[in-house]
């Protein structure tokens, strides 16, 4: 697992994009305090998933409002899946495995 920054880099309920080993990864901080990480680019038309709205289950791409499961990366609206990455918080530090 690689450290990518502080959990406080991400406001509660939002997402931010990080570049890790040349990969674009959107990390989301859910309102229950947990974190999720998905590939940052929407497979539909390349929208920025980190700019999408989230709840405890899904992220909704801001461009055309297709939704993906935050835990699995599976599409909830019939699109291709996105990659999901293991991510955890340790002492306020974010770690992601690519």
């Amino acid at each position: 697992m690689k450290p990518i920054g502080s959990v406080h880099d991400i406001p509660l309920g939002e997402g931010r994009t990080f570049a890790v080993d040349g990969r674009m990864i959107a990390v989301f901080r859910l309102r229950d305090g947990s974190v999720r990480a998905l590939s940052a680019v929407c497979p539909h038309r390349g929208g920025p998933l980190a700019d999408g709205q989230i709840d405890l289950k899904q992220v909704v791409c801001p461009l055309h409002l297709y939704a993906w499961d935050l835990a699995t990366g599976c599409s909830l609206s019939g699109q291709d899946p996105v990659t999901s990455y293991p991510v955890r918080v340790d002492d306020d530090q974010l770690f992601v495995e690519v």
């Binding site: 990518i4 931010r16 980190a50």
Partner: peptide, 21 residues
């Protein structure tokens, strides 16, 4: 208003790269 409010979410420009160890 929030941390990284205006940080890019897409690789339009080079993002803050995490040093690769």
């Amino acid at each position: 208003a929030t941390p990284g409010q205006f940080r890019t979410s897409l690789p339009l420009t080079v993002l803050p790269q995490v040093p690769v160890r």
